[in-house]
């Protein structure tokens, strides 16, 4: 029967049982996501100009570098706020965005990562379907946030290089002492390309996984809802209850 459908439709149909639309990505998380997209895009555009001002001596742009630097710095502050919001969500968010979901803590996490790598290498036909992030995705996002932190700190160090704010200095004045002011700028600039590369990679992977697992993955970052089969959702609920119970016992 399966093969008959396939022949008619060319693409396989997949029965996923009774499914439930689950509100996986809460509003603040989606805010962080789209805020990062917009602020990083704006900062890449303005930041490249600040590195290499390719528009020179235009009389109709009397304050071009000043404006670009202003936009860059405002976006940087937005990025800092989004980072802090995401950090807060690690401890106060829904269970799919909390710190426990982001770290490879489960016993099968490393196995899950390996299975995902096998999927990307075409050694496995389907990805590991999870309600939230799979272990490999969680690791990628954790790494991304670490790089965002490096970008924020080097950016603030450059900001304070001119501002001389003693309170901000407590957090960032060690950076130029540690790596030198030029390497700090180099790091800040090179990370831009890492973020752009990550963006390309991220969109590709999302489309790929969404196409394969068919649960509205791409849609979920707009609406927050993913379509999850009942039995998988029950399993996820069961694990969450076990985790919280385990934590209760430990306390």
């Amino acid at each position: 029967m399966q093969s008959a459908t396939m022949k008619i439709d060319r693409h396989a149909r997949m029965r996923v049982g009774t499914a439930i639309a689950v509100y996986v990505w809460q509003y603040p998380l989606r805010l962080v996501h789209w805020g990062l997209v917009i602020s990083i895009a704006l900062m890449s555009l303005t930041g490249y100009y600040i590195h290499d001002p390719y528009i020179v001596g235009q009389t109709r742009t009397p304050f071009l570098m000043g404006t670009f630097r202003f936009v860059h710095e405002v976006c940087g502050m937005v990025l800092l706020a989004l980072f802090l919001l995401r950090f807060y969500l690690l401890f106060a968010g829904d269970r799919w965005v909390r710190w426990r979901a982001m770290l490879p803590l489960r016993k099968d996490a490393w196995q899950e990562m390996w299975q995902m790598i096998r999927f990307y290498l075409f050694l496995r036909p389907t990805p590991i379907a999870k309600v939230g992030h799979n272990a490999l995705a969680a690791m990628m996002y954790l790494g991304l946030y670490c790089l965002v932190l490096v970008e924020i700190l080097t950016g603030l160090a450059m900001f304070n290089w001119l501002l001389h704010n003693p309170v901000l200095g407590i957090f960032v004045s060690w950076i130029p002492r540690f790596m030198g002011v030029q390497n700090m700028r180099l790091t800040h600039y090179l990370l831009m390309f890492v973020f752009i590369s990550f963006g390309i990679f991220h969109v590709h992977i999302c489309l790929l996984v969404s196409r394969t697992e068919r649960r509205g993955l791409v849609d979920s970052i707009f609406t927050g809802y993913k379509v999850i089969p009942v039995d998988e959702l029950e399993e996820d609920d069961h694990k969450a209850i076990l985790t919280s119970r385990g934590r209760g016992v430990a306390k």
Binding site: V56, Q58, F63, L64
Partner: peptide, 9 residues
């Protein structure tokens, strides 16, 4: 000149 985007190239 820096703020105005006027640079020696």
């Amino acid at each position: 000149h820096y703020d105005a985007g006027r640079f020696v190239t």
